[in-house]
Design a protein around this nucleic acid. Structure first.
Length: 871
RNA sequence: GGGGGCAUGGCGGAACCGGUAGACGCAGCGGACUUAAAAUCCGCAGGCCGCAAGGCUGUGGGGGUUCAAGUCCCCCUGCCCCCA
């Protein structure tokens, strides 16, 4: 009796059953077994699952299920990146406790996630805001401290005026805005904690070469961010009005020592430590006022090549040691104290920013490099910044830039004027945050002992809960005198706790390690467990973390390796960056308003519901503000998780953007119903998988006797699907879209052939279909597997292998080309050799028609494919 | 400005190492079933010419290599991303 496909009932039933059977728990027996660690970037518990999450986790789940079928022990965990500002903002706006708010969101999101049928081991779930997790974040921080890799310094730092906290460089975008709040970042001079990531700059750059399982562009982005450049450090002596050295000198960093004869001024950052002492008396006021003005600008505004450059002279001079020239000292907005040595040599002829600056203040522009083969370069447009040949450069005239750099640095080293130096764009990682809802930095400030680490036995430094939030001023922690005032662990005198918390990117820089050993109470993880599961075999997440999270995690892994806690130094073997989920968006081009799809009327002629104006229609990333979001829960209610999964996997290759389309979702639903009816029909005819050899869907009783034409064709289709899908899902290149297409092809063939096929061959095909389907539509595959009498769970079967014998065909269509153009097909024996194929082609009707009786000049035979006749 | 990527039917996308371009799906059209509709099933479908057989043409544009180019090389145009 036919039963309708009812995903809601099937899915909840199997989810409960799998949970009861612990089907998704991580196997820990049999240490000899190959392991596979499939990891999704863990979410921030906002409380709402969106389609981007769904896509991410479904991709990872298919990979995890596939690896299980391939016989590997699989770890697929899930956790929560649970510290962060939204919780604190909820506290300020609605008076709820950030911890309570976060817990509620986690519960809600976990329930939403569980509806997707993900084979996640929930026993290993973690949240970074739980004391049994952040205890180890603190422990790791103290490891960094002990290694000299965490330090405090006063620095001009990025201040987000909206979120009221400082930010790391990576967290400020190219417009000078905060990655979170979007506010223009200000500069503030504060004493802050840093992690010395620059000590690993070379390793982080060099080891990118090992990461051949990462997308090329992510590696390029990281390399650019680290920004290694080789140049020189040159010291310019300061001279007094009489031209005598004062004993002071200014050290500049330059990547262009070959232009040193073109220096027409020196520029210091306004907050360079030498500025005050180098400023002439009559310039003091001007210089101070300028420094204050610059402080309000972002780094990006200051250094952009297309923005005007401002500066003031100090009224004092230095000397170019190479040619003895007297050169004026300036300060300017486009020089940053934090980069290089905080001072640069101004070479207007060969640096665009120097050029703009020199034009503005009428400083001399002297050309010292000419383009190869030219006498001069015209300067209307700007500086000549390419390499060339030196002129006006004393003994170095005539040398090409490359050689000149070496010769000039060599001279500087001999004379004690400077040396070669490697400079990185990468800055140390600023990790202090003046916020409450984060991991407390486990140190105590003591007047006599200085910074004292909290002793291990006192960890974790717990975050006090249920505080009052004003959202103004310092972190609420600073106002909790009971919490702040503690005795110094070293001398016992009254001391104060650090009230800053850590950047949440610290918490997420090691969570993938904790998953290997989540309940360890003696260590963040045991080396044995970490080595057993890691590096992560497949990491899946958004490209937006190309620099931030992925760079920090690589840094952590290298440090922990050097501390002897790990034996590997790259955390993620393969990385898949999935594309965005987009949906159709309606926008009034005149007003800029986004209109909800329900309000536009006829989608073929969308109009603004208020004024009837014609709307623009395009695909854009789903978001609330654009009214184009599709809620996962709604889709699951209507079609089931299996349909949602199939749609997402089929609609676009994983790394490309995906355009949501309700009609295509319907299409997937129809496909799953077709499979349902197909199997239901077989069940109705009494087919039963129990008749197959146990535990293997891929090896029927082939070879016994001659198969009918229908049997042969069906077997060929089934085994072709195995071969094609295995190929589409080979390690590291995951073409889910074509794999689903192959499933459709197989089901199409089965639809027309299973009734004509013999029972064993039909059953074999059903077994193959359901096992191949199981990673994609786990509930449907399981339900149909059981209905067909399958033993155990479909998810405990072995991935089938294609039977070469089933793929063999007696004849194949041979393409006949004449002069490269396809003129027709010839059915030929599949195993015919080249000579036979040539004869067959020459004797064919096609040859007679197109060759006018002339023998071809040339014949190209590609056995198994084609014959090309060239007259 | 520098670096990287992409461009294929009405749409999303296939095409291994250069070997039948458009798999699979969506939308569309025709037919069967139905009182009717939905659902389902069968079929058609890049464009142009043709009643048809068939022919010509076609992977952003131009050139090249090759028996053969979506695929390799050079130039151009457009779009996207990263860095400035």
């Amino acid at each position: 009796m036919a039963v309708r496909y009812a995903p809601a009932e099937i899915e909840s039933r199997w989810q409960a059953h799998w949970q009861a059977e612990s089907l998704d728990s991580t196997p820990i027996d049999d240490p000899e077994r190959d392991t596979f660690y499939a990891l999704s970037m863990f979410p921030y518990p906002s409380g709402t699952l969106h389609m981007g999450h769904v896509r991410n986790y479904v991709i990872t789940d298919v990979i995890a299920r596939l690896q299980r079928l391939r016989g590997r022990h699989v770890l697929q965990p899930m956790g929560w990146d649970a510290f962060g500002l939204p919780a604190e903002n909820a506290a300020i706006e609605r008076g709820v406790d950030p911890g309570d708010w976060t817990e509620r969101n986690i519960d809600q999101m976990r329930r939403q996630l569980q509806r997707l049928g993900l084979s996640i081991d929930w026993d290993r779930e973690l949240a970074t805001c739980h004391p049994d997790y952040y205890r180890w974040t603190q422990w790791l921080f103290l490891q960094f401290l002990e290694a000299g890799l965490a330090y405090r310094k006063e620095a001009s730092v990025n201040w987000d005026p909206v979120d009221q906290t400082v930010l790391a460089n990576e967290q400020v975008d190219s417009d000078g805005r905060s990655w979170r709040s979007g506010a223009i970042v200000e500069k503030r001079k504060l004493c802050q904690w840093f992690l010395r990531i620059t000590a690993y700059a070379d390793a982080l750059l060099d080891d990118l070469d090992q990461l051949d399982g990462w997308p090329e562009r992510v590696r390029t982005m990281q390399a650019n961010w680290i920004g290694r450049s080789v140049g020189a450090e040159l010291a310019f002596p300061v001279i007094d009005p009489a031209g005598q050295p004062t004993g002071a000198s200014i050290t500049v960093f330059t990547t262009r020592p070959d232009t040193v004869y073109g220096v027409s001024y020196l520029v210091l950052a306004p907050d360079h430590p030498l500025v005050a002492s180098l400023t002439a008396d009559d310039q003091q006021d001007t210089v101070q006022a300028f420094g204050a003005a610059v402080n309000r600008q972002s780094d990006q505004e200051r250094t952009a090549e297309d923005k005007p450059k401002r500066g003031v002279p100090l009224g004092t001079f230095g000397r170019n040691p190479f040619n003895g020239e007297r050169i004026p000292l300036w300060i300017a907005d486009y020089v940053l104290a934090e980069y290089g040595s905080g001072a640069v040599m101004g070479v207007p002829a060969h640096d665009q920013r120097d050029f703009v600056f020199a034009r503005q203040y009428e400083l001399p522009v002297r050309q010292v490099i000419v383009p190869e083969g030219a006498d001069e370069h015209a300067y209307e447009g700007g500086a000549w910044t390419e390499p060339g040949v030196l002129i006006h450069s004393g003994p170095f005239d005539g040398l090409p830039s490359g050689q000149a750099k070496q010769a000039i640095v060599a001279l500087a080293e001999r004379e004690g004027w400077g040396k070669e130096r490697v400079q990185f764009r990468l800055r140390d990682w600023l990790i202090s945050r003046q916020r409450y809802w984060g991991c407390p930095i486990p140190v105590i400030h003591c007047d006599s002992c200085g910074v004292v680490p909290v002793p291990d036995a006192q960890l974790p430094v717990e975050l006090p809960r249920h505080l009052a939030f004003s959202g103004k001023g310092a972190s609420p922690l600073a106002q909790l005198s009971d919490w702040v005032n503690v005795p110094c662990p070293s001398c016992g005198q009254p001391a104060r706790r650090e009230t800053d918390t850590m950047d949440t990117f610290i918490c997420s820089s090691w969570y993938y390690l904790r998953f290997s050993d989540p309940h360890n109470t003696a260590l963040p993880f045991s080396r044995e467990e970490a080595d057993r599961w890691l590096p992560v075999d497949q990491y899946v997440g958004g490209i937006e973390h190309a620099i931030l999270h992925l760079l920090y995690s690589r840094f952590f892994t290298k440090v922990l390796r050097d501390r002897g806690l790990l034996s590997f130094d790259e955390p993620f073997r393969r990385l898949l960056t999935q594309g965005m989920v987009q949906a159709l968006t309606y926008k009034n081009p005149r007003s800029g308003q986004y209109i909800a799809p329900a309000e536009v009327g006829d989608p073929a002629d969308p109009r603004d519901p208020i004024n009837g104006e014609r709307l623009e229609v395009f695909f854009e990333k789903m978001s609330k503000s654009k009214h184009n979001g599709v809620e996962p829960g709604v889709v699951i209610d209507r079609y089931g998780a299996d349909t949602a999964r199939m749609f997402i996997l089929f609609k676009a290759p994983p790394e490309k953007d995906l355009e949501w389309d309700d009609a295509d979702v319907e299409g997937q639903y129809r496909f799953l119903q077709r499979i349902w009816r197909l199997v239901d029909g077989a069940v109705g005819r009494g087919l039963n998988l129990a008749g197959l050899p146990p535990g293997n869907a891929g090896e029927p009783d082939s070879g016994s006797g001659a198969l009918s034409a229908a049997d042969q064709e069906l077997r060929r289709a089934a085994h072709t699907a195995i071969a094609a899908i295995s190929d589409d899902l080979a390690d590291g290149h995951y073409q889910f879209n074509t794999a689903v297409a192959e499933l459709m092809k197989l089901s199409n063939v089965m639809g027309s052939l299973v009734e004509a096929a013999s029972e064993p061959v039909a059953l074999e095909a059903f077994g193959i279909l359901l096992v191949l389907l199981s990673p994609f539509a786990p509930h449907l595959a399981e339900e149909l597997w059981q209905r067909l009498g399958g033993k155990a769970s479909v998810h405990r079967q072995a991935w089938p292998s294609a039977d070469a014998a089933a793929l063999v065909q007696a004849t194949i269509p041979l393409v006949i080309q004449v002069k490269g153009k396809v003129r027709g097909n010839l059915e030929v024996p599949a195993d015919a050799d080249a000579a036979t194929l040539e004869q067959l082609a020459l004797g064919s009707e096609i040859a007679r028609k197109w060759l006018d009786g002339q023998p071809p000049r040339r014949v190209i035979v590609v056995p198994g494919k084609l014959v090309n006749l060239v007259p």
